[in-house]
Write a protein that binds this DNA or RNA. Structure first.
Length: 556
DNA sequence: CGGCGTTCAG
């Protein structure tokens, strides 16, 4: 018997990756007098959960007569990590209700994280109150979990209040707050906290720099990013894989691909995420041939692209309308079973419809096991771009039936559909519903579509009134769209007014002067053309346009 | 058994 237990111990300490093996070991344990030992129960809860059998995990927990804190914590964590938030919370409540055992810092850390992951603000408040009542209000682990959770829910001020309650925050707590500011777009406050942290004598680690870099990369502040780059070099943290990836990503988002590549090269053994950051950078900067080049290089390293990388490669293929390549990637997706992934499928839909193969995009959409708002938006945009406005609207209603909430991009696609089909009435109506019914504030892109829609229907006055109802400064894209409508309708009086507004906000840009000059020319007002041309200094040379489509004309 | 950081799709 003893030999068997030693053997069991060593099996348990190995990572048990087979559910069958776990079941065999468990059956063996049940035959012994140790089956009631909370230590073994805890081990099996974890093993079952790690192998995806949450029901068996709960069975073990449920049948245990003596339950240690470890056992409770493991079960709560198992539920939380299997996306069963309500089961994990109800177990936590049971624990609170029972008199014999109290949650400890481990329990709270897990529950707090689960609340944040599920955006359960009300529950987070309850948990926070409860941990204070349990005397853990100043516990460093609970506090850093709270700081992260509040920040994730967009309540950085709450996070700050927790932080300020601690007399001597440890490094993790500093890092949590700094990441919280970074993730909430307040990178400058994050930098202030960072300086304060160094002032009180704490040395930053990789987490600190990563937290700062996330915010700086999002805001595209190249100078600050460069300072952080220097700082990470000085402390030897640039070789940290997370910091390295973030530096690549930061330079990529600033469109500084040469620097991004230099950082990439300085990383000893770049992982898939670092590669993806670089390749995504080339994709977003429009250097599409580099995307393929590095994809091939990655292939030679014997590393397989994952869903995230495939999605960004597909986005760059969509931009170049290279459907042959898109099909190759689709083949890769099918061979590796990546099609069920919403990110991959949404990117495929977009790629096919931007390449001119709407039907193939719709096929992918129909095959999807689960669809989210992005999948619907992709297919709505595809339909709209191909002039199928009524199908686009039908898709909106299907999406609403699935209880998905449309966002700004949904309405952008619908307005695009109305523009392509010339549906002025439906465009006006959906624009109104977006604001009144769905409480979405119209963004510049929505106004651009509305102006185009009204302008192309000859409703110039209504389009002009719409732009004048906006707060100053009006986005140039909106006024530019209006000016372009004036051009096609030959209305030089309104064009003058609109162009004047554009010149005031952006005196250096000659694009709109050229447009106005063309409108004058169309009216035969050559004196005005000359006056305008004289005001233009510097280059007014047009960049040559490039366009190509591969294979779009073959019928499938 | 724990608290902080990395790539992506419309």
């Amino acid at each position: 018997m003893l030999i068997q237990f030693q053997w069991l111990h060593s099996e348990l300490s190995n990572i048990c990756k087979s559910l069958l093996r776990v079941k065999q070991l468990h059956a063996l344990l049940l035959k012994t007098h140790l089956s009631n030992d909370p230590f073994y129960a805890t081990q099996f809860v974890r093993l079952y959960a790690a192998n995806g059998d949450i029901n068996s995990a709960y069975h073990v927990f449920d049948k245990s007569s003596t339950r240690s804190v470890f056992l409770w914590n493991s079960m709560i964590r198992a539920f939380a990590q299997s996306q069963r938030f309500y089961d994990s919370i109800s177990l936590f409540r049971t624990m609170l209700g029972g008199a014999d055992i109290r949650p400890d810092d481990y329990t709270y850390a897990c529950v707090i994280r689960a609340c944040a992951d599920n955006f359960e603000f009300g529950m987070l408040r309850v948990v926070h109150g409860s941990l204070v009542a349990d005397g853990l209000g100043l516990d460093p682990i609970c506090c850093s979990a709270l700081v992260t959770a509040y920040s994730k829910l967009g309540l950085v001020h709450e996070a700050r209040r927790v932080f300020d309650g601690i007399a001597e925050p440890d490094l993790v707590l500093w890092n949590s707050l700094i990441s919280g500011y970074g993730g909430s777009g307040l990178w400058d406050v994050g930098m202030q906290m960072f300086n304060l942290m160094r002032f009180v004598g704490k040395n930053p680690d990789g987490f600190t720099l990563a937290g700062l870099l996330v915010g700086v990369a999002d805001s595209g502040r190249l100078r600050v990013g460069q300072v952080l780059h220097g700082l990470s070099k000085k402390s030897g943290l640039h070789s940290d894989s997370h910091v390295g990836s973030l530096l690549v990503s930061m330079y990529s988002r600033c469109k500084y691909m040469a620097s991004a590549y230099r950082v990439f090269c300085s990383i000893f053994n770049p992982d898939l995420i670092t590669w993806s950051a670089l390749i995504a950078g080339y994709s977003q900067s429009g250097e599409y041939e580099k995307v393929l080049h590095f994809l091939r290089k990655l292939n030679m390293e014997n590393t397989k692209p994952d869903c995230v990388l495939i999605a960004s490669v597909l986005a760059s293929i969509a931009q170049t309308a290279n459907v042959g390549l898109g099909c190759e990637v689709h083949g890769y997706v099918l061979r590796h079973g990546l099609e069920p992934d919403v990110r991959v499928s949404s990117a495929l839909i977009d790629m096919y419809s931007k390449c001119g193969f709407l039907n193939l995009g719709i096929c992918v959409f129909r095959m999807m096991p689960e669809r989210n708002i992005i999948s619907y938006n992709s297919v709505i945009l595809g339909l709209g771009l191909h002039g199928c406005a009524s199908e686009a609207f039908r898709m909106l209603y299907k999406m609403l039936e699935q209880r998905l909430v449309p966002d700004e991009a949904t309405f952008s696609s619908l307005l695009c559909a109305c523009c392509h089909a010339g549906l002025v009435k439906d465009g006006r109506e959906i624009f109104r519903r977006m604001k009144d019914e769905f409480n979405i504030k119209a963004r510049p892109e929505h106004y651009v579509y509305m102006v185009k829609l009204l302008g192309s229907a000859g409703e110039l006055e209504e389009a002009y009134n719409l732009t004048q109802s906006l707060l100053e400064p009006v986005d140039q894209a909106i006024l530019g769209a209006l000016l372009s409508c004036c051009n096609s309708l030959g209305n030089s009086e309104l064009a003058e007014i609109v162009a004047q507004q554009l010149f005031e906000s952006n005196p250096a840009d000659n694009v709109y002067r050229v447009m106005l000059s063309n409108i004058y020319a169309g009216d035969g007002r050559w004196d005005d053309v000359k006056k305008l041309r004289d005001k233009m200094t510097g280059g007014i040379r047009k960049k040559p346009g490039l366009s190509w489509i591969e294979g779009s004309y073959c019928q499938l």
